[in-house]
Each structure stands twice: as structure tokens, then as C-alpha cells.
Design a protein around this nucleic acid. Sequence first.
DNA 1: ACTGGCACTCGCTCGCGAGGAGTGCTAGCG
DNA 2: CGCTAGCACTCCTCGCGAGCGAGTGCCAGT
Lengths: 342, 342
Amino acid sequence: MALDDRKLEVLRAIVEDYVATQEPVGSKALVERHNLKVSPATVRNDMAVLEEEGYIRQPHTSAGRVPTDRGYRLFVDKLSRIKPLSPAERRAIERFLIGAVDLDDVVHRTVRLLAQLTRQVAVVQYPSLSRSAVRHLELVPISTTRLMLVMIADTGRVEQRLVELPAPLPDADVSRLRTAVNEKLVGVRLVDTPPLVQDLVDETGPELRPAMSSLSAVLLETLVDRPEERIALAGTANLTRGGLLDFQGSIRPVLEALEEEVILLKLIGSADVDASTPRVRIGDENEIEHLRGTSVVSTGYGPGTTVVGGLGVVGPTRMDYPGTIATVRAVARYVGDLLAQN
Amino acid sequence: MALDDRKLEVLRAIVEDYVATQEPVGSKALVERHNLKVSPATVRNDMAVLEEEGYIRQPHTSAGRVPTDRGYRLFVDKLSRIKPLSPAERRAIERFLIGAVDLDDVVHRTVRLLAQLTRQVAVVQYPSLSRSAVRHLELVPISTTRLMLVMIADTGRVEQRLVELPAPLPDADVSRLRTAVNEKLVGVRLVDTPPLVQDLVDETGPELRPAMSSLSAVLLETLVDRPEERIALAGTANLTRGGLLDFQGSIRPVLEALEEEVILLKLIGSADVDASTPRVRIGDENEIEHLRGTSVVSTGYGPGTTVVGGLGVVGPTRMDYPGTIATVRAVARYVGDLLAQN
DNA sequence: ACTGGCACTCGCTCGCGAGGAGTGCTAGCG
DNA sequence: CGCTAGCACTCCTCGCGAGCGAGTGCCAGT
């Protein structure tokens, strides 16, 4: 059954009021606050229909109506325009992000900014190694049988790993190794390195072969096969906002979920995200069981139109979607621009 | 006024029971659970004295007694022995920490381990740069006028900073810079570098002087003058344990405080910590206003007896002090040993 | 110095009733 | 046919008071 315009308007009003007041909204209050042209009774009839269709529900008989996940979904898809950011917000974003000294700094500032602007929990993934290319590889002797391998990626990430050598290696040989790996790998995307790394080993002379093998094993395993994803989190205190009404009484499961990097990666990981417009997952749409009852707004970011990582926020289903979506999108763009500069 | 042995015993019993049950403890229950040799009435008299002295209090007339911060303090200082860890705990620690691939990994594992074992919020400071020495400095050209400076510290920390050069610099000159700074600074503690960095600039020939100046400015400012401290946090979900009884009803201020790195550093920062035995701050003893109502157990860690960073846990004043202290101390030692190996 | 007894305090829980917001239904109106 | 006004009904919320019980303080006795 198709909902006519007025019913949609009623749904929008319910969502907006509920988000604003956090209380079930009744027919009378609705017509007053939104000066609709019809009477409460009419609105009640519309509400009955909306309820039948599953867009709203009553917590109990004789209480006002509350949007369901489905109602929010319709609201987000059809009934809301993304709010333009206020100049103050734009300024806040700019002010926050200038002066970052390194990637860590950028990510930390971003996640705090996002938490502050949306007043929710913010999550930012570091640029994914799998979407990075090698900018430089450095080998630092730690002892005669240990090297530290430092990889600097074009996304600004710097990773280090210990390499145990099968036999002591003079410094001159370390230099040769360094030159060899850099010549072969600089500029190559990490996902494309495996065959080249194999070449490297094959091409290495017998005296350096064992060392190169150890090195390539570390390279492949820890940087390519299961590259470490990193995540920053901020604003968990915002979960306590809105009393115990949100998150069906306990923020426990939410906090637990947020401590699992794996879960966070699923949430805002860059896997299936594109940078055009944020993705919104509402309540039950979330795969993570602990996060039913929350909504997640996430998007990819990166220099230009490419995506190197994801970011987003986690909040109650009862959130200001237009504002949150706008903020997430704006922050992602700024961060992308910032990365493009380096 | 001196408390006789039995009164101390009563205090200890009250603390233990309250920690275990989370409920005010009454005289009758006390004599039963701890089979004291005296009657409830006697215990009541002792309680009256303990209350006068400020070690315990009643939430309201006709409720049991609850320890005050002062009571906990006495308990920690005089009435408790540090529990030895169970073999299971020792095993958990070992299992958790082997297989860490780099410093990030070590810190992350440690903080999660600590949170899990103590069932509280755990905080681990990365080895402080101010207590590190330079192991290697690397310069990577990003463009003709930009270098990335990577410092590898003996504590395993790796820091990178962008250096803007006043003029384009050929690769050969980059190498000369690299050699110069490494010869001068490798092995030197960061706090001791400033005069040497100055020497470096002075000794540099005129053609490299401008580049060296930029480089030294970055070195001094971001690595020595205000070195970035890093912190890892885990177990915030544990704050919700024990309902709303702990933290006077709201975990909000606690979560807020935990988001401030500055605050965390004050808490567990290595400044005034020694590695011998954990420091315990109970309730009001905390300087941080938001953390009144919590207790903090912290200690320093590092290879051998040196201290390179701090770690600890934050929990309700009503916590298992002997167990927590033992765990914090044990984890700190293991981490210290682990660092010593690298 | 400790104990048993006893009166007392006071927070907690429950049931009850009044109040009120909001609803669904029905009849009437344009 | 859609909208509206009126009305009876539901059910949540809040406040009140009684009963209960844990725990206490005090006092007299050993």
C-alpha cells in the first residue's frame, strides 16, 4: 500500500519530534508543533496506518508513537535532505585539522573532531595497508642477527617489524639488501608485491639469499597477508547521553563491541564503502548483534575519489540523521584533502 | 587513638565483605562469615569506634557499614598482603604476550590482558620518548623539498615527522645528512640530544646548513621539547559492571576523563613512578576531579629496573586491591622482561 | 570487657487510587 | 469520501501509607 503525502509528512514529523524530545509523540502535540492543517483525529488515523505498515509503534497502549527501524529507514531514504553544515562547523573542522604533525596526529584529531561534532562515538580507520603503496623500505640493524624493517607507505603509515636473520650479516650486506628491496618495491601497491618479493629472493645471490628469505617472509606475512589494521575511537562518553533510554537500558554491549577491532573494522572498514555518500545502517540492519539498537553512519575517505580507509560514528537509532550524515561526509572530505596534500 | 587488633580485623572483614558483595555489611553477617570469636554486639561497638575515626560509614541509619576512602587506605597499607597470582593467571600472561610482532602489538596485548585479568579499565603508556635513546634516524625523500624523518628508538618506538626543506635537496645530500645525524646521535638519550643537535648545525658546511637547520628544528621541537606520549586503553565496558552502584550513579565523568590523554598521563605516566611496587590512589586521593570515586593502581615498567613507561588500571574504590595490585605488578614485570629482550 | 536483650530507626517494597495523556471508535459534517 | 468532534477506554505514572526487616545503639547483666 502506498502512503500518501500527508502520511509521509506525519512520519517525518514523528521522527523529528522523537529525535528532538526523546519521548513518544502523540497526535495532539504533533499538529501543534508542526502546525499541520488537519485535526488530531485525522493524524491518528494516519498513525494507525503507519503502525500497520510497521513504520511506527506504541511502547504501550495509550502512549504516543515511536519510529521503528523501518520508519527511520524510510525517513533517511526519502524524507530527509542532508543538512548543510553551519559555518561554525566548517570552521571547527578546519581549525581542528590544521597543524597535524603526522598521520597519528591526523587520525586522532579527526576522531575527536567527529565525536565532538556529532556528539556520538566516532571511529576512524587508519589508511589501510592493503590500499597503500610502498614509499620506502628501511633496514636498521638491531644486532648482528636482527634487523628492524621499517616500511613507509604513501598513505603516511609507518610500520615496523623485527626480522630474525639466520646468520650474522655485515652492514655492507644490509645496505645491499636495502637497495635491492627498494629498487624492486618502491611505488608498488602492497597487494601487488608478492610476485615481486618472490622475484627478489630468486634474483638474490647465494650469499645474501638466506637473509633475503627471512626478510621476504616477514614482508609477506605481516604486511601483505594479514596487514595490521589500525583504528582510533573517541567519544564513548557520549553513549551515556540520553540517560538509559537509548540502547535498551545498558550501554554495556555497545562498549564491548567497540573494544573489538574486528567489529569496528566490519563497521567502518573500507571494504565495500565508496566515498560518494555515507552509508547508514539502522538498528537491526546491523550484522553485529551487540549493536542492534544502534545506528552506524560510515563512509570511506581518501585523497581525491580513491578510498584508503573508513570512518564513521555509532549512535542511538534515535539520532539526527541528516546532521550526522552531513558531518560524516564533510569530515571525510576534509581528511581526504589533507591526505592528498602529503 | 590506636585501634586494637580486633578492630583492625573487623575493618578488614568489612572491606573484604563489601568488596565481595557490594552491599553494606552488618554486624551479624560479619561474625557469621568470618567466624569471629565475639558477639555481634561487640562488633557493633568496634564499628562505632571505626566510624568515629572515619574508616567506615553508614549510608543511612540502620544500614550496614561501608568502608570510606580512609578505610580502604588503611586496609591497603596495613591489612592486606598482595595475593600471589594463580598459575592460570601466570599462564594467561605468558600466552598473551608471546608472539607480539612489534611495539604496538605488545602494548595492545598488554592493555587487553590487564583489562581482562583485573576486570577493570586498563591503561598502558607507550615507552616514553623522553626515556628513550636514539637507535637510528632515517631520512626519506618525499619530494624534492620534503623529507620524512623517521626516528627509531631503543624502546621500540618509531616516530615520523615531515620536514619541509627551504630548498630542493639532491639525494646525495640527503645521504650526507643522514650519515651526519646518525653518527652524532645514535645511542644518545633523547633528553641529551639538544646540545648535540646544535653542534650538528654548527658543524655543517654552508651548502647543507639550511637543510640541517630545518631538520634540527623538527627534531628538537617534536621529539625532544614536546615529545608525543602515546596511550592505550581497554576494558571500558568493565565500568558498567556492578550496575550503577559504583561511580555514584554515572560512569559519564569517568569515561570523559579517560578520553583525555593528558589525564591518563597524569594517572599512570612514568614521571614519579618507580618500578618496585604499584602505587595506589584511592577515591579522593586522586587529583583528577572526575575520578574521585575511583581508585587507580599504577606502576612503572621497563627493562630490568629502569622505567620507560607506566601502566595501571582504573576501577571503583570498591575493588579487590590485593588482587589488582598483584596483577598490575606481574604484568608490568612481564612487559619489562619482554622489552629487555629486544 | 564482653554479651544478650530490646526498643527504635529508617529505607525498601507493595498495593492502591487519582490523574492524565493518548488512543480507537463512531457519528456527523462538508 | 475524507475529515472532524466527541467520548469512552486503556494504561502508565506518581504519590501516599502501611508493613516489613535489617541493622543499630544502649543498657543491664555476667
